[in-house]
Computed example of a mutant assay.
Amino acid sequence: MNIVKLRQEISQIIQDEVKTENVMEAVLKYKKEEEEERKEKIVNGIRAAQDKGIVFGRPRKKIPAQFEVVYEMYVSHRLSSRSAAKMLNVAQSTFLKWCSEHVN
């Protein structure tokens, strides 16, 4: 909605600046309330979906079976995190995340 164009159209119809401003205020207030209601519906829908167990976002990568062996080599300083990640065909950040989860 182009507010300037809307204001011009209303002004042409009403031909009274004070009444035009009153109508514009009412229109903008209605639009704002409508937007807030829409946002609230979205938030409620997301919460309802999460309560049903729906998970948003990208699925987690599964830790490969050879992770333990590569992890032991990494911990014993025989491999760098970059080399270990390459061996597992994952990003270095993913490998380091798995390492921190493995420790905890």
Score class of each variant (00 low, 15 high):
2 N>I: 08
2 N>V: 05
79 L>N: 01
52 K>L: 14
104 N>H: 14
60 R>V: 08
73 M>Y: 12
6 L>D: 03
30 Y>E: 10
77 H>W: 08
95 F>Q: 01
21 E>A: 11
7 R>W: 00
64 P>S: 10
59 P>R: 14
59 P>S: 12
95 F>M: 04
18 V>A: 08
57 G>K: 06
8 Q>D: 08
67 F>W: 11
26 A>L: 05
52 K>P: 01
65 A>N: 11
55 V>G: 05
42 I>P: 01
32 K>A: 07
50 Q>N: 08
57 G>T: 05
27 V>C: 07
68 E>A: 15
19 K>V: 00
46 I>Y: 02
99 C>E: 03
84 A>V: 05
21 E>M: 09
71 Y>R: 12
76 S>H: 11
101 E>F: 13
86 K>N: 15
72 E>S: 12
37 E>S: 10
76 S>Q: 12
18 V>K: 12
40 E>C: 01
9 E>F: 04
100 S>V: 13
36 E>P: 00
84 A>L: 02
30 Y>M: 09
72 E>H: 13
48 A>I: 06
35 E>T: 08
78 R>I: 08
1 M>G: 10
6 L>M: 14
45 G>W: 08
28 L>M: 09
26 A>Y: 05
52 K>A: 14
11 S>N: 12
34 E>Y: 03
63 I>Y: 03
88 L>R: 06
47 R>G: 00
75 V>G: 01
65 A>M: 11
82 R>N: 09
21 E>W: 02
11 S>Q: 11
53 G>S: 06
3 I>H: 04
97 K>E: 13
63 I>E: 07
47 R>K: 14
49 A>K: 14
14 I>R: 01
63 I>D: 00
58 R>F: 02
24 M>C: 06
37 E>N: 11
41 K>T: 06
8 Q>H: 07
5 K>V: 04
82 R>G: 06
4 V>A: 10
39 K>R: 08
19 K>Y: 04
97 K>F: 04
85 A>H: 00
3 I>Q: 13
92 Q>S: 09
22 N>H: 06
7 R>V: 00
6 L>E: 02
